[in-house]
Every structure is written in structure tokens, then in C-alpha cells.
Simulated assay, not measured.
Amino acid sequence: MAFQQTITVLDNQVTVPNAYLKIVSANVTTIGEIITCDITMYAYKNKEAAENELPPLTTYTDKFTPIFGDNVSDIKQQGYNYLKSKPEFANAIDILEEISL
């Protein structure tokens, strides 16, 4: 999964319409009874830039409290759901990735 939305980079100097945003890492940390998941999402000009491993235009980082158990989304899906709950990503379009077997 990934997102598509217009972003601004370089201190709001450049607008990138239909940028491709993808979580590249999700790391769960437990300290005592507190569990958090740190996520990193890269933003690219488009999907092809990501697939060709070009440098990202910008990086977003955040953290959330993951949920574990039966019938619960995986960590990355929870990360995307969390990000969509934030105003800056509320209008992002979900991009479903093809799964290669």
C-alpha cells in the first residue's frame, strides 16, 4: 500500500502533484508496558521514482500505539490508517500494491 497526494517540499517552494508516499519502515519498541511503533514514510515524485530507488523528495516520521491480536491489521496497514487520521494525510488516495507470488 501507498498514498498519493499533492505535497510541498523545499520549505513550501515546490508543489508536487500526485506524489507517491510509501512507508519504508515500521519499528515496534517496547519499554516496560509501553508499546510504540515508529514509522518512516518517503515521498517520491511518482511510483516509478520509488521503484527506481531514486532519493525521496522528503521524509515523514511519526509514531503510534499499535494493536495486536486476532483479526487486526498488520503494522504497516495500521501505520497507514494512523497517518490517514492526521489532517495532512486525510485526503490522500490509497494506492494498493500488487502482490507478486
Rank of each mutant, 00 (worst) to 15 (best):
S85F: 04
E53N: 15
G69S: 04
P17H: 04
I23M: 01
A90F: 10
N71E: 15
E97V: 11
N18K: 00
D38I: 03
I99L: 12
N18F: 02
A43Q: 03
Q77F: 08
E51F: 06
K63T: 03
L21C: 03
L101G: 11
T59C: 14
L83F: 01
K45N: 12
F68N: 00
Y80F: 14
I34D: 15
Q78C: 10
E51C: 09
I99C: 10
Y20P: 02
S85D: 06
L10I: 14
L57P: 01
D70C: 08
D62N: 15
E33I: 08
F89H: 01
E53L: 12
Q78H: 05
K63L: 12
I7T: 00
F64A: 01
V72P: 08
E48G: 08
C37Y: 00
T30H: 11
T65M: 01
L21G: 01
T29L: 09
E33P: 06
C37P: 08
L96C: 05
M41Q: 02
P56G: 02
Q78T: 08
P66E: 11
Q77W: 10
Q77A: 13
I34C: 09
A19M: 11
T6K: 00
N71Y: 15
M1D: 05
I67D: 07
A90Y: 05
K22R: 15
V9Q: 08
Q13E: 14
E33Y: 12
S73M: 14
Q4K: 03
Y42C: 07
L21M: 14
N81T: 12
N81W: 03
I93R: 14
S73Y: 15
E53V: 11
F68P: 03
L21R: 01
E33F: 08
T8C: 13
Y42N: 09
